[in-house]
């Protein structure tokens, strides 16, 4: 007696299996178009989201796994004539993965949507919230529905392309791409300056005061605060190692012992790679009595006014250290 075939090969359900294999190709093309349009300033990546850890690299082949598990040297390592390590687990072909489509510059990422996709439709797209609000009505008019978690459910390639077009042409996406292009240009400019000048100083008050002076001269150095004389030599070594091309100024209060402070510091750090500025007795002296006994917050709130009203030419004549600082900043 011949048994019935339950596979259903003859019925229409096989025709309903629509493959998603074109999605990756479509998406990769969109990435390329964006790159070309922005002349490489902004790019997009469509890739699997890695959420869990990485597979152990030590177990490379299935046959190794079998031997490891069974500790049996005679374990079968083929199925039929095919070596086990060349067999693919068929469930991996079907399994659903989650992809992300993200728009990038070197310094910013914007995830436009994620896509849960197996080998056949339907696929589910989770669009960034604001863009979703913009496009949901239009999607609905085209028969593309959302589930309760706001994933839009896409049944075929035509609907996928419709949805993708709406999303990519959304006004927020346009805005993001424009702004990213502008930001790339301005970042290139500011990156050139960011770590050009570095000032290493003892404490926060020094940073606040010197920064106010730098602002008045339209200069924006980076500050590294040592939080104490004892820390400064280690910090300077680290800063110099990382920023070999930067101009580094080290500002230390002499606390009444200029020569001793200088000798001690040069003994620890050496003499190369930085300029040393020893202030007699401390940075605050340049603006005493205006900043005497100020709390940190009061200093933050008032220093710009105090420095703004100060006559730099007079201070330069009065304090060698002030003159040396200005020369560094003005360079």
């Amino acid at each position: 007696m011949k048994n019935e075939s339950f596979w259903g090969f003859d019925n229409s359900s096989m025709d309903e299996l629509v493959a998603t294999d074109r999605i990756v190709e479509v998406m990769n093309d969109q990435c390329k178009y964006l790159y070309d349009y922005t002349q490489g300033k902004v790019f997009a990546i469509f890739d699997v989201i890695k959420r869990e850890g990485a597979l152990l690299s030590v177990i490379k082949t299935m046959s190794e796994v079998s031997k490891y598990v069974s500790k049996n040297a005679t374990i079968q390592d083929t199925v039929g004539e095919v070596p086990i390590n060349e067999l693919i687990d068929a469930s991996d072909i079907y399994c659903e993965k989650e992809y992300a489509f993200e728009i990038y510059t070197d310094t910013y990422r914007y995830r436009l949507f994620s896509l849960k996709m197996a080998s056949i439709y339907p696929v589910k797209m989770k669009i960034e919230e604001v863009v979703y609000e913009h496009v949901m009505n239009e999607l609905s008019l085209r028969g593309i529905k959302s589930d309760k978690d706001k994933y839009i459910v896409i049944e075929n390639e035509e609907s996928f392309c419709d949805a993708l077009k709406l999303v990519l042409q959304d006004k927020k996406v346009r805005y993001i791409i424009n702004e990213l292009q502008k930001s790339v240009l301005s970042e290139k400019e500011s990156d050139r300056n960011v770590l050009d000048k570095i000032i290493v100083c003892e404490g926060r008050n020094d940073e606040i005061i010197i920064d106010a002076i730098a602002q008045k001269l339209n200069c924006k150095p980076i500050f590294v605060v040592a939080d104490g004389k004892n820390n400064i030599s280690n910090l300077v070594s680290n800063v110099h190692e990382r920023n070999a091309n930067a101009q580094i100024l080290v500002v230390i209060d002499s606390d009444g012992e200029e020569e001793k402070t200088k000798a001690l510091f040069e003994k620890k750090v050496g003499k190369d790679g930085y300029q040393l500025l020893i202030v007699n007795n401390q940075v605050e002296d340049w603006f005493i009595p205006d900043v005497e006994d100020f709390s940190k917050l009061k200093l933050l709130q008032t220093i710009d006014t105090i420095v703004g009203e100060a006559e730099f030419d007079e201070l330069r004549k009065k304090y060698d250290s002030f003159d040396k600082l200005l020369k560094f900043l003005e360079r």
């Binding site: 310094t107 910013y108 990422r109 914007y110 995830r111 919230e129 970042e187 960011v194 770590l195 570095i198 290493v200 980076i222 500050f223 590294v224 910090l235 680290n238 800063v239 990382r242 920023n243």
Partner: peptide, 20 residues
């Protein structure tokens, strides 16, 4: 020197450089 790298519904990512 700090900039925002990514904004999401529940977290933001930033990168910054202290010079050190």
């Amino acid at each position: 020197a700090i900039r925002k790298v990514q904004t999401t519904n529940r977290y933001n990512l930033y990168s910054f450089d202290t010079g050190v």
